[in-house]
Computed example of a mutant assay.
Amino acid sequence: MLQYTFSLPTTIRFGVGAVKEAGVCAKSLGATHVMIVADQGVIRAGLTRDVETSLRDADIPYTYYDKIVPNPRDYHCVEGYETARAAGIDCLVAVGGGSSMDTAKAIGTLLTHGGKVQDWCGADKLLRPITPLIAIPTTAGTGSEVTPFAVVTDSETHVKLNIFDAKAAPKIALVDPTMLMGLPPHIMAATGIDAMTHAVEAYTCKLAVPHTDAYALYAIKLISKNLRNAVNNRSLDACTGMMLGSTIAGIAFGYSDVAAVHCMAEALGGRYDLPHGVANAILLPTVTAYNLPTNTKKYADVAEAMGLDVTGKTAEEAAAACVDGLRQLCTDVDIKPMREHPEIKPEDFHALSVAAMANVSTPSNPREMTVEAFEELFQKAYAGE
């Protein structure tokens, strides 16, 4: 009989104006001095103003840490930790995409554990909860506001490492769809495909369970319905659908896993600093096609959830339609194929495959992976297959 445990350590507050509750939430966590972790672009765009106002209204002082970069580096996390420790920070508020939230999770880990980031990378290594974290997403992609892990790049090896522990999950997620209204279309596209990848891999990976299946399928429906409009014809309705889809996909993969698409994408990001969502997008159709034979019924379910016409199709035909649908979605939101990213070099594919094979999520892929299989998939993706 199937047995598993499912719990959500994060309280989610969703809706227009949710970001204005930051001060009340921080006070509920006992905060006396907050660090706002956000990149300079998010700050310049005014997306932290309501957080500042809310904290002032709650009489909670705050300090900024803004050295946030895509694919966050270990040394930035250490610098943020040292700044927070010197300031006596007892609560973190991350505002931004996955990079801000991952950086904040690593800072919180070091505040309660000491040592270096690498000491706490791996599964279930934390000894106690991290510093209380409020996560406020400004993109609809990473789902990091509800996930129990942080991805950090080792600056010496250029390999992405994972802190993977429920004790690293944010205490509160303030999920406000208005935060997406000014997001540049290319970022909406990349982060949206990232969310779709989370949902598809969560549903089809080996660690999927009925609860995560339900979240994943609903996320696929929401993202398929709203992403094109969110990119090409922005509206609050489309942003609401995408923010819901992203957070729900985050729950799905955060409590099942991702698979080979992410393993390969993280290898690309570690080597070339390629945006994570773009890396996922250029690999998703190719890897999905490779995985189809393992569970055609589930991939047929994905096609149906995407709204594709599967009437009269066999499970195999519907599963194949899923691949075509994912490829078309990437095209419709103007994600360039792998060969149009000049930084990606075919001569690196073997080293990238070795890195992908070492990823903690490789065993979760529905089809067995080898270094040779990863290398073949890199080659196929580069050829547009």
Score class of each variant (00 low, 15 high):
G41I: 00
E52G: 04
L55K: 08
S144W: 09
T109R: 08
A104W: 01
V42Q: 03
T138N: 04
L111G: 05
D50R: 05
V95S: 05
T63F: 05
E145H: 00
I89K: 03
T147S: 14
Y75R: 15
Y65F: 15
L110Y: 07
C91V: 06
P137C: 07
P137L: 01
I60V: 15
C91P: 07
D102Q: 04
D124K: 14
V51Y: 09
K105R: 14
L92C: 00
D90W: 02
A94P: 10
T147V: 11
I163F: 10
P129L: 10
L55T: 04
P70H: 04
V37C: 06
D124P: 01
V51E: 07
Q118C: 07
Y65M: 06
A45W: 03
T112C: 02
A84F: 09
A86S: 15
A106D: 10
D119T: 08
A94I: 11
L161T: 13
V37S: 05
G80P: 02
Q40I: 12
S144R: 12
C121L: 03
P148Y: 02
H158D: 06
V78I: 13
T53A: 13
D102G: 11
I68F: 00
A135C: 03
V146F: 15
G88W: 13
G143W: 15
R49L: 08
D90H: 02
K160I: 11
L133M: 09
D39E: 09
Y64D: 08
T153Y: 08
I136W: 05
T138S: 09
K116F: 11
A150P: 05
T83C: 10
T153P: 09
K125W: 01
D59K: 10
D66Q: 10
I68C: 04
G88Y: 11
T139R: 06
A140Q: 14
M101W: 08
Y81I: 00
V152Q: 03
V117I: 15
T109W: 15
S100R: 00
I36R: 12
D119M: 08
V69Y: 14
T48L: 07
A123E: 13
K125Q: 13
T139P: 02
T142D: 11
S99H: 04
E156T: 15
F164H: 13
V117S: 07
A140G: 12
G41Y: 01
L110I: 05
D66N: 15
T153A: 10
G122D: 12
C91N: 12
P70R: 05
T153L: 09
S144D: 11
D39V: 07
H158V: 03
T53G: 06
Q40T: 15
H158K: 14
T48Y: 04
R49V: 14
T109C: 14
D66R: 04
P132E: 10
V93A: 04
N162C: 15
V117W: 02
T139Y: 04
V95F: 13
D66V: 01
D124L: 11
C121A: 07
D59S: 15
T48W: 01
D59Q: 14
I43N: 00
A87I: 03
H76D: 11
V51M: 08
V152S: 05
T63P: 00
V93R: 08
V151Q: 12
